[in-house]
Design a protein around this nucleic acid. Structure first.
Lengths: 191, 191, 191, 191
DNA sequence: AATGAATGAGGCTTCATTCAT
DNA sequence: GATGAATGAAGCCTCATTCAT
């Protein structure tokens, strides 16, 4: 692994562990096993690592979704699998997700966010397009715009559970079911 | 205005201007026109001001929603008015909202978030309950849980436009229409 | 003594001792017996102390000259006393003088130099005016401009001895005599 | 051009641009278009380049003086030509001259200064010797010592104009005339 | 000889926090 | 309660120097 990747990986770990505010650059380089000065060859500041981290997280999310969705299943089941995957990722990486919002929000990197998310939007768009073409969801769906609402809804639902709630698990299942039901109606899914 | 309020107002301004990470307590006290030491009589740290800010913002949101919704209108129209209000608030206070997420996320104050949001959830819950009782939306709706999805959906949609997008206005209207349509189906709204 | 003066005095000492390049701000504050952070309440950097030091040095020079010149002596003798005073100051504070040149030269403070020197120019101007009025020096002398040449000549002569030469003392006396002779002719001094 | 010369030339440029204190070795090698490590094959430190620069400047000065002085002119005219040449050099290279003083002053290289200047002193000595032998200047002149005063006077006069003054040109001519007059009397020049 | 990525010691600077007034 | 000058711990960041290629 090259030094830049090492830094990003280490930053993810440390941010997760201590939070952004309390993370020192010395923590990152220690974990990355490189010299303090080397950090500055690749990033000008602690926060400038955030977009790189965000990119990786979106990649992870897309990969998880792809891996979780069975090609041969019905749309409704696949939708459930998407929701499951997003909930799982949110659960596993909630600290990092929270800090991505924080990190991107507290800097000028905000504008990069949409770009980073684009591949996920695209995947969901195509997912919806197929269902729309096969008549599984209502024909009035605008797939691009709905893909953003879809992701926004599922992620905010997952965050409500994992980021802000202390309780979990059973709550998560209820919330998932609710989201699915909500989506089923919203998209007018034929089962 | 008493000193505590002065601090909160100044903190909102400065956070908005410079972001949380880069805001110094000295910036806040300078704008609040009080002495450095006075800050510590009211708050133990920079981030401990966040819940107070969040509270104000949720109050603003609820007030805006209440003021925007006409009692005598049909549910569908009212729903549109709710969406409008949330979009407006998000547009007007997007920096502060972003920093609230950032500020709460980057601290231990996260758990206070749900508490702070509770009044808004309650209001939407009641709003849905009335519609459910009058048969305007499908009977299978679980009002408490759906209120959270409802708010999560609308806010994430608004954020997609105002926080991350550069373009606006026309985009906003399209997004609003999309959200309404999405909700109409999700809730099975009878017009 | 207030903190600012303390810093200037300490800076003179430390610069003298270690040179500018090798002086750390921590050295200055240690000697001034103040906290590291206090330094920055008064000066933004190590070099920004230089003009304050230069001012003090010019003051010292003027004082030394004034104290060394006997009111009741002939102009030629007084001129000798002036040269003596400048040579003495240069000898005693050669490191500081060298670093003033260095410090002012290596920054943007260069322009302040003339302002700082003005009082010395004025004193010599008046000194020459009296001699000119009493017919002791040639009438064609332009006192303001000549005062600058006078000081430039004497100081560069003194620097040649004390700043750059390793040998001293006997050299100094020869140089002084030479300067005096040079000036005597330049000004056409009647003894 | 070999690497060593490249370094010296680049150092002159960068020192001129940013001042000594703020110049990094990385700046020099960047401009010299060589690798960081290569610098150390030729110089042990940033300041050790200074004597090489000083030498070049003195060479430039002597060359300028030699080129400007017409063999067949009267001493007084030649003296004017010397003053002109020194003023011109000071005007053209004032930043470098300032940094030479600064650079040599702030190190242990100070002692090398006199050595570097020796050729210029020698040239002026000989210049004065000829005038003395031909009876053009007073017989009491000690040529070696006077050469140093001569140079010191003219350079300090030029520096007062070009290093520290903002105004120029017309000022320069007045100052030159004053210096000439001063010297004429000091040396008792017969026209 | 030349390179330039990597190093890490150490100086710079900030800024939360204190406390005498 | 209010003040704000002073503090100094702590982290940032630079940049001279090295060394494997």
């Amino acid at each position: 692994m090259n030094k830049k990747e090492k830094i990003v990986q280490a930053a993810i770990e440390v941010f997760k562990e201590k939070g952004i505010e309390k993370t020192k650059i010395s923590d990152i380089v220690k974990l990355a096993n490189i010299a303090q000065g080397t950090f500055y060859l690749y990033f000008p500041s602690k926060l400038s690592v955030m977009p790189a981290i965000a990119e990786i997280m979106v990649e992870k999310t897309i990969t998880a979704v792809k891996n979780n969705v069975r090609e041969d299943e019905a749309f409704f089941i696949q939708m459930e699998q998407v929701v499951d995957a997003v909930f799982n990722i949110t659960s596993e990486y909630r600290e990092i997700l929270a800090l991505i919002y924080a990190g991107l929000a507290s800097t000028e990197h905000l504008k990069e966010w949409e770009t980073v998310y684009q591949p996920f939007y695209s995947w969901i768009s195509e997912f919806l397009t197929k269902a729309k073409n096969s008549g599984t969801i209502r024909d009035s769906i605008h797939v691009e715009r709905t893909s953003k609402l879809f992701i926004g809804l599922v992620e905010s639902a997952a965050e409500q559970i994992y980021l802000y709630d202390t309780k979990q698990d059973d709550q998560a299942n209820i919330q998932k079911a609710e989201v699915l039901d909500f989506l089923t109606h919203a998209l007018n899914v034929k089962k």
